[in-house]
Amino acid sequence: MASAIPLTRADMKRLADYAKREGVKAEVQIDDFIFRVSADHPPAKVDGSEESELDRELMEFDRKHGYR
């Protein structure tokens, strides 16, 4: 028979709130029970001007070396 979870719902919510607020992964291990939570991280935004600069440099390189 499975034993009861050693954390209360309130404990798990506090840990999840902490992980989200701090932007970290948190883990609690009690005997064989492990509770892990991770913050949701939005995808990193790419600066469009930086990407354009890299594209321009690549096109210049390609032209210089006869690729286009």
Rank of each mutant, 00 (worst) to 15 (best):
R9E: 14
D31P: 01
A16Y: 00
A39E: 07
H65V: 10
H41R: 14
D11M: 05
A39G: 11
L15H: 03
V37I: 09
K25R: 15
F33N: 04
E22K: 15
D11P: 03
D55S: 10
S38D: 08
H41K: 14
Y67C: 02
K20E: 15
V37H: 02
K13L: 13
Q29W: 00
E50G: 02
P42W: 07
K64A: 14
A26F: 03
G66M: 03
G66S: 04
A26E: 07
G66R: 04
A44S: 06
E22A: 05
D40I: 02
Y18Q: 05
I5Y: 02
E53F: 15
E60C: 04
A16V: 11
K25Y: 02
A26L: 15
E60V: 03
E57I: 08
H65N: 13
A4I: 07
D31G: 12
L7I: 06
R9N: 09
M1N: 08
M1E: 11
I5K: 03
R56W: 06
R21I: 02
L7N: 04
R63I: 05
K13C: 02
D40N: 13
E57Q: 10
P6K: 05
L58Q: 12
V24D: 03
R14E: 14
D55L: 13
S3G: 12
R14A: 14
V24L: 06
I5S: 09
H41L: 12
F35S: 02
I34A: 05
R63G: 08
V28A: 12
G23F: 10
V46H: 09
K13R: 10
M1A: 12
